[in-house]
Design a binder for these strands. Sequence first.
DNA 1: GATGAACTTTACGTTAACGTAAACGATAGC
DNA 2: GCTATCGTTTACGTTAACGTAAAGTTCATC
Lengths: 128, 128
Amino acid sequence: MQKTFSISDLAQEFGVTTRTIRFYEEKGLLNPSRDGPHRRFSAGDRTKLRLILRGKRLGLSLDESAEIIGMYGTPGNNRRQLETLLSRIEEKRAELMVRRRELDAMLREMEQAERKCRTAMNELDANA
Amino acid sequence: MQKTFSISDLAQEFGVTTRTIRFYEEKGLLNPSRDGPHRRFSAGDRTKLRLILRGKRLGLSLDESAEIIGMYGTPGNNRRQLETLLSRIEEKRAELMVRRRELDAMLREMEQAERKCRTAMNELDANA
DNA sequence: GATGAACTTTACGTTAACGTAAACGATAGC
DNA sequence: GCTATCGTTTACGTTAACGTAAAGTTCATC
């Protein structure tokens, strides 16, 4: 008795078109079950969609998001698989931390631009 | 006697092709002067290129990067212009802060995945 | 003065991520 | 039984951000 979602449910909730969702399925990022010809999305699919869209906002490609999502599942039971997974996680995490630093730098620069702007406005006021 | 850079200087320094740099000029993101037919890039151009490429890594489009770079120059002297600029800066800054929160969330999730992975490995060790 | 390296312009090609349109099926309400 | 709504598949179109190839120029150097 799990809750499921239609394609337009998800499209509306996340502000994307149904075409987008079908495209993600086509690429293997989503695996809805079928109710006749109609897609039925699980809560897991919904979560994946949320992660994909967040990844997009952060500048990740769909393939990158797929890779990251793949890291979230239950890890395998094989030693070598676990080690491979762990190193891939570490690698991605390092990448993301670099991005975070760059983002922080950009934010600081914008704060500086804002200060310059306010200073210029104050000077206008002073000369009025 | 300012230092300038050739197109291949910058291409090599930043690990992009010359085509990429010409493309950015074509789009108005860079404005090198000319030495005969050859482009001469100033330190300012170099900085802009650096900002563009950083923007790309953060998932910004070239147009978005251009907009942000435009915010860094010396602000105008007109009151209305200043107010417009200030609100655009504020808007972009808010956007970037949202991204930062999302990036942090993703990083936390990856740390969690890493812990799960390590736990699984420890269990393998224990049962050996 | 021929060669090679670095540069130029012009122009068509490519990939990711969808948009858009056509043509069709199921189902609910009037 | 007609129509509207929601879904389906198939297939070609579009945009951003370059890649790639062709054909020519300039300048140092052998």
